[in-house]
């Protein structure tokens, strides 16, 4: 049987994912609390790894922010394992050539953020901005930056994201994306969004919403929100076997597409 190029790539991708999962299984035995990169989100203490100085090479950037409800560091959810696994996959399947062993954590008012036009934010349901951060993010997005929101649920959390983004774009209108959107075809062809796994219980199928320049879907996408799901959780647990390989694959595919799309649009 002859396999198409896409089929061959999918198989290669799945095999790579399995290998990474198996390779990291031993480490997984050490227990979550020790291994999850120094994240202790409930105590407010984060063991940050040093940032990678800019040299033109792609570096995953996670946005840090203040939690307006408590001292919990919601922004650090899945840090750093989630991005490590994701960057390894990205490096394996594409020519992006990202740093795989290091990543950056930057606040929105950090000038260094401007050197990384793609950034990721976890749990925007708890996100709030200082005036300096507001100015930083406004410049970042208007100059051409792209922000990925992930890991949040409930109308209340969505309301917070809308509220925060409305400080930059008062008339912002988030658009529910369909599988036809180019972002779902920039590398892998994701033809059915219903296949994207749901991480949370009782929140239905995940929703993918885009924010566009001038609220015009034909223009540049400024940000994408993975609402009612937690894609990075699948990245993080790729080596644990907690979630199925097929579900994890879909999460990685989504992430790869986001990066390729944001690098070219």
């Amino acid at each position: 049987m002859r396999l198409s190029t896409t089929q061959r790539r999918s198989i290669a991708f799945i095999v790579t994912s399995i290998l990474i999962s198996l390779g990291l299984t031993v480490e997984a035995q050490r227990g979550f609390s020790q291994r999850r990169g120094g994240e202790d989100r409930f105590s407010g203490n984060i063991r940050l790894e040093g940032n990678q100085p800019y040299d033109g090479r792609f570096t995953f950037v996670r946005v840090s922010y203040q939690n307006f409800m408590s001292r919990r560091n919601e922004w650090s959810h899945d840090y750093p394992v989630g991005e490590r696994h994701f960057m390894k996959i990205l490096n394996e399947v594409s020519l992006v050539n990202p740093y795989t062993e290091t990543s950056n954590v930057l606040a929105l008012d950090n000038p260094e953020l401007m050197k990384y036009p793609i950034a990721y934010m976890a749990e925007p349901g708890y996100w709030m901005m200082t005036e300096a951060e507001l100015a930083g993010l406004t410049a970042y997005l208007k100059k051409g930056g792209f922000l990925i929101f992930d890991d949040f649920r409930s109308p209340w959390e969505w309301g917070n994201l809308e509220l925060q983004m409305a400080r930059i774009y008062p008339n912002a209108r988030w658009v529910d994306l369909t599988a036809e959107h180019p972002i779902f075809h920039s590398f892998y062809d994701i033809n059915n969004l219903d296949l994207i796994p749901q991480y949370f219980q009782n929140y239905g199928t995940p929703k993918f919403r885009g924010l566009f320049e001038d609220n015009d879907p034909s223009k540049r996408m400024i940000a994408i929100a993975n609402f009612d799901t937690d894609i990075s959780e699948f990245w993080e647990y790729a080596d644990t076997g907690i979630r199925s390989v097929s579900e994890t694959n879909e999460a990685f595919k989504l992430g790869v597409n986001y990066i390729i799309y944001a690098l070219t649009h």
Partner: peptide
């Protein structure tokens, strides 16, 4: 824009995104 996104492999040609 002819964006090469993945390198050629022994079994597959390079992957391109055309914009």
């Amino acid at each position: 824009l002819l964006q090469r996104t993945a390198a050629a492999t022994p079994s597959a040609p390079p992957k391109f995104l055309r914009l």
